[in-house]
Amino acid sequence: MITTVVGNYPKIGTGTKTPNLRTAISRGDRGEMTPEQIQGVRAEVTAEVISDQIQAGIDLVTDGLIRWDDGQTYLARAISGFSFTGLIRYFDTNTYFRQPVVDGLLKWSAPITVADYEFAAANSSKPVKAVLTGPYTLARLSKDQKYHDQKKLVLDLAEVLNQEAKALQKAGATVIQFDEPAILKHKDEFPLFQEAMDRLTKGLKPTLALYTYFDDISGVYPAFLKLPFQIFGLDYVMGKANWDVVTEVPSDVSLGLGVVNARNTKMETEAEIGDAIKRIAPIVPSDRLYINPNCGLEFLPRETAYQKLVRMVEGAKKVAEVTA
């Protein structure tokens, strides 16, 4: 059983040792800090949130996506063919992002997240998982003014992200996660999604994870778990139906069990986490199980996010001790 996080981690907290990123960015806006100095603060905060995760007992960490404003624009700004328009709501959350506009052919020109991965790997005593937004979700959350052909757009983005993943592979990434929450809101497009996932994962050697959240996979199960990935992250908090839908997991893949609610401050009990792990045991043995929150932790204040991870790890440990 491996404990992990889904992706992002709260960027600021109270009483932290590192400079406050929010203050640094405001000072940058006023011309009181250089972009290089702000990058320095981002690096310090990244190192801090990696160390927070390790201290909480997380086995497989991320860099907390501290440099990302959101799952879309961080990648889109570095991919040729995108511009940006007004703020829109991210799914049913109270968070917003500048909507990417596709107004040119989409092309990968240089590594986007490789330096971030290398920094995280150098600053972590635990394995680091690289995280990318998947091509379907990135396309769905963008406004297309160029392709007028959803399939070609998604497949071109899959190609772009495949090249990014190859760059991560070259840099030594052993686990790469792709986030695809949007497919659960548009299940009728699953055939296109399958094609995109084939293109996305072509020739990649690292362990590949496909994470979904905010909903369940009813309607695309069992085909979903046959996509070319080794780990499937499913949301058992907002997608409670996953408990009934997913009755079997192929024996050659692992399940990422999203059991901690990263969108509400109410603390889970260790018993609740333990019960969830026991409940999934007949479907997936513990050596093919990842335990994680249901989505990224940035919807929570930093302190609550940390406490939830501590609780999750404790709950998982207790079950492991009993079953060992």
């Binding site: 709260p10 960027k11 600021i12 907290g13 109270t14 929010r22 960015i25 405001s26 806006d29 404003d69 959101d70 703020l87 109270n94 968070t95 917003y96 992002f97 940035e298 919807f299 929570l300 204040p301 930093r302 302190e303 609550t304």
Partner: peptide, 8 residues
Amino acid sequence: GLVRSYGN
């Protein structure tokens, strides 16, 4: 505690 809504 503080949570982010967008940007900074």
